[in-house]
């Protein structure tokens, strides 16, 4: 039983290190900032996720003292990764993208980084008209 647990934990740790490295490697390999954004948000988060699961299993099975902190960290990282990616993308759009270079929104308003949001009252009326 412990032997199989050791194999599983080792596999998870190796996978975690591998994905964390791939994410960071993509950061230097890919040629353009929006492409680079893909590597850390996905690969690195999964890398840390599997390391954390491995640690939980290790303390539960091998050490016999369950530890739940990792669950909090995993949840926190998985919830914050999209927000970080969104903010970095917005910073990039604001810094060095022209609004004309982006695809149109398909509505009468532009993208939120360049265009002011419509007045709250107007938005309420629009929603009422739907």
């Amino acid at each position: 039983m412990t032997f199989f647990a050791e194999i599983l934990i080792s596999l998870l740790i190796v996978a975690g290190g591998f994905f964390a490295f791939v994410g960071s490697f993509g950061l230097i390999k890919l040629p353009e900032i929006m492409q680079r954004l893909h590597a850390p948000t996905k690969a690195t988060t999964l890398g840390v996720g599997s390391v954390l699961v491995a640690s939980m299993l290790y303390f539960l099975i091998i050490e016999g003292s369950p530890s739940i902190h990792e669950l909090v960290i995993t949840l926190f990282l998985f919830l914050t990764a999209p927000i970080t990616a969104n903010f970095v993308a917005k910073a990039h759009l604001h810094e060095d993208q022209h609004p004309e270079a982006l695809p149109p929104t398909g509505g009468e308003h532009g993208w939120a980084t360049f265009d002011a949001p419509p007045d709250q009252r107007v938005a309420g009326q629009e929603r009422g008209a739907d």
Partner: peptide, 26 residues
């Protein structure tokens, strides 16, 4: 939805239209 798009295959949601009716995805 924006969070899901960011975490799943090869797409990152970058911006929302000012009126909240479309998402800019890379």
């Amino acid at each position: 939805l924006a969070g899901t798009i960011t975490m799943t295959p090869g797409t990152v949601s970058s911006d929302l239209a000012a009126d909240g009716r479309s998402l800019l995805v890379h």
